[in-house]
């Protein structure tokens, strides 16, 4: 009986907070996407623009990563869905949010470097706790690519948390 009450409370908490967090996150994603859409263009192909390898441009590795966890309610829903099969909708939005957040963080990184474009974007998804008993499923998404920085923008260059990596990259 106590177990059932605990379950109901967790479900209610998971639903309430989970829905609130998701809506808030999506609002923030949409707002930032609007800002970066024109500021840092993102392409997944590796061919730089025609003037790409010109003298006045520089390249840097940029990345963005995020770890997001699914709430109790959605995890329960996914568990039920696994019995019947089909689309696990509750995890789809989780991954969508994680990917968009990772790309946004990468864009932010590129924007700090003064880049106007990121090319050759790659994404990695890892699940930190694979649906084990009593753990909440969470995913890590890493987005990385090459930022193309025009020379005159380099004056705006600030050291980033990837400072060492970019130095190595520079030497190479």
């Amino acid at each position: 009986m106590i177990e059932f009450v605990t379950f109901l409370v967790l479900m209610a908490l998971g639903y309430g907070f989970g829905q609130y967090a998701e809506r808030k996150h999506y609002r923030s994603i949409l707002e930032r996407e609007k800002r970066f859409r024109s500021e840092v263009l993102v392409f997944q192909t590796g061919v730089p623009p025609e003037q790409g390898q010109g003298q006045d441009q520089d390249v840097r590795l940029v990345m963005g990563s995020v770890v997001i966890s699914v709430d109790y309610f959605k995890r329960f829903l996914a568990g039920l869905r696994a019995l019947f099969g089909g689309r696990v909708k509750s995890y789809e939005s989780l991954l969508d949010r994680a990917r968009r957040e990772a790309v946004l963080r990468m864009q932010q990184e590129a924007s700090k470097l003064g880049a106007g474009m990121v090319i050759n974007l790659r994404m990695e998804t890892a699940s930190i706790s694979k649906g084990e008993e009593k753990t909440v499923g969470s995913v890590e998404v890493l987005a990385y690519g090459t930022a193309i920085i025009t020379r005159d923008a380099r004056s705006r260059f600030e050291p980033t948390r990837f400072g060492r990596a970019t130095e190595l990259f520079e030497r190479a």
């Binding site: 959605k74 829903l77 039920l80 689309r87 909708k89 509750s90 789809e92 991954l95 969508d96």
Partner: peptide
């Protein structure tokens, strides 16, 4: 496109009913 707008509670009711 990559997510669906269906209300999660509706899905819960359907799945529980099925169980």
């Amino acid at each position: 496109i990559n997510t669906s707008n269906e209300h999660p509670l509706k899905e819960l009711v359907w799945l529980l009913g099925g169980v």
